[in-house]
Amino acid sequence: MKLKQTLILTVVLSLISITVWELYWRSQGYFPDLDDDKYLWAKTRAKVEKATENDVVLIGSSRVLFDIQVHEWEALTGTKPIQLANAGSTPLPTFHDIVENTNFKGTVIVGVTPPLFFSTTYEQAPPWFRASSRSEFYKNRTYAQRLNFVLSIPIQNSLAFISNDDEAWYDDINLKALLNTIELPHRTTNPKEPPFRRFQDIDLYRNVRMKERMVTDTAFANSIMAVWKSMLTSEPKPPPPDKEGTIEFFLKNLEKFEARGGKVILLRSPSDGFFDELESMITPRAEFWDELVAKANAPAIHYQDYDKLKNFKTIEWSHLSATDADNFTRNLVEVLLEENLITNLKTN
């Protein structure tokens, strides 16, 4: 067996094949970027352990991720907020984690996307589990997992074909995702779901920006809207909201957090069209948001109540474009500063 020649040829063939693979995906518009995964979330969560009273932690669902730009916020206030929002999830388990497992007594901005915030306290339900599993991972991650993440950053930042997001997007380019795109006749009675393509980028600070393509390519934006519609209208439909249970759970944590000096600001970000109609129908403002604000007795910002915030138009009924997110962040920070809800360390 000529093993040395075999090894040399193997190395050459491997390098050629992986280079061609990388170049092919780059030619298709892919570029090196980070995955929004539990490792990145855990790294960000670790920052809360050392955060001071002047720090701001962002929790919520995807609207907080898309609409609040952490770099813009830092430029305006001198503090980079810690972005811990999780797409498609309720912020309740993350808030519970911060209250119970840290000594943080700064400001927590709680994004309220009503169908998610008021959805459930059932631990196995997807909106809860998606968030709580990340807190669990943070608590239990091994040193090897921490090192794996550190080592993966330069690779993720250098190679476009590395894409292994927790969300398992239709257009991820790992082997499993590619195999899932193979179309064969339908066998089961499950409705065929429209392809859910990644429509945002994330950086090391978990700053999420909507892809420019969402603004320039209407068909692409429409494909995301089709996903929202399918998610919310196909069977089985999501269970009705658990208003009492979720508010009670939140208030318990809020009481404990405020008792140690922490501050909470509730935030309702913009939504339009289908989402706005659905949210108004399932979780009408007066019965849900207003009641939550009254019971929490905490500062609350509803985009409809502020001239600076109410004129933003979402791209796909739920999230702002990158440019609008910059403006929204700027205006939101102005509102928060005007109302003395956060501190501007730059002027202090």
Partner: peptide
């Protein structure tokens, strides 16, 4: 492996490396 020509063995090995890298896996 002993009965395979070098090019075939190397191609099979390289294919495994390639599939491993594109599979990525989640540890």
């Amino acid at each position: 492996a002993e009965n395979l020509p070098v090019w075939l063995f190397a191609t099979g090995w390289a294919m495994m490396v390639f599939l491993l890298l594109i599979a990525q896996g989640s540890g």
